[in-house]
């Protein structure tokens, strides 16, 4: 049971080949505009293609229901058209395959105070928390998180880190710019640049000093297992 994409190219991505074993987790790193989100949208089917295999089945041949069971994508922002859909209503709509109840899920990231707010009025950090909780309720086999910690304060980042690590998510692909998060999560890493995969290997191999230098040059400093931008 594995998932893969084989030698895929489009106007942004070039020669993308990637295989994930069952229950394997992955971190996607890369500069802005490297094609990370493009790859994510391809993997979850939002960008149609015939080259993605999920759990040994071609993604485009699956029914919409079956596809939603296999893979879910959590965007960096909560885009919502209707102003009358509250946080609670949104989460209820998101509950598909998970056993956790909406009320339990709301507690995981303290969303109780927001439940009756319209999704349109949320700050970007609140949006991200709602989106994360929605992924727990969806309960897909693979969940792709697109920059899940980008707008969070430090306390929330710790909460989200714990959640991302937890067993309530089966298998995850996490796109991030936060190297400390990537390091702590410890999952396999791919590094993307200009639409191509420039590194694919273990977490340990990626964070070797020599390897880091190759990708980030002098713009990054490692201080006590934390990665700091060298301003």
């Amino acid at each position: 049971m594995n998932s893969s994409i084989n030698n895929y190219s489009n106007n942004i991505l070039t020669n993308i080949t990637l295989t994930l074993e069952k229950d394997e987790n992955l971190i996607i790193l890369g500069s802005n505009g490297a094609g990370k989100s493009t790859l994510a949208k391809l993997l979850c089917g939002i960008t149609p293609s015939t080259d993605v295999t999920i759990n040994n089945q071609k993604l485009h041949t699956l029914s919409a229901k079956e596809r939603s069971k296999q893979i879910n994508y959590i965007p960096p922002k909560l885009e919502i058209f209707d102003a009358y859909i509250t946080v609670k209503a949104y989460l209820e709509l998101s509950r598909l395959y998970a056993t956790i109840s909406v009320d339990e899920a709301i507690k995981t990231l303290d969303l109780k105070a927001l439940t009756n707010h319209s999704c349109k009025t949320l700050s970007s950090g609140e949006q991200q928390r709602v989106l994360l909780v929605s992924s727990l309720l969806h309960g897909a086999n693979i969940t792709i998180y697109d920059e899940p910690t980008a707008n969070l304060d430090p306390n929330r980042t710790i909460q989200v880190y714990k959640l991302l690590k937890s067993d309530s998510i089966k298998s995850r692909i996490i796109i991030t710019h936060d190297l400390t998060l990537a390091y702590r999560l410890g999952y396999r890493i791919i590094y993307m640049k200009e639409g191509a995969i420039h590194f694919d290997g273990t977490n340990k191999a990626f964070f070797e000093t020599e390897n880091l230098k190759q990708f980030f040059g002098s713009s990054l400093k490692k201080i006590d297992n934390h990665f700091v931008v060298n301003l």
Binding site: C44, I46, E79, I80, I85, Y90, H138
Partner: peptide, 18 residues
């Protein structure tokens, strides 16, 4: 329709034949 009112991508990911 309710899911489409969130966003097309969300409806798609939630298993609607958009």
């Amino acid at each position: 329709i309710r899911l489409l009112l969130t966003s097309y991508d969300n409806a798609f990911l939630k298993g609607i034949e958009v």
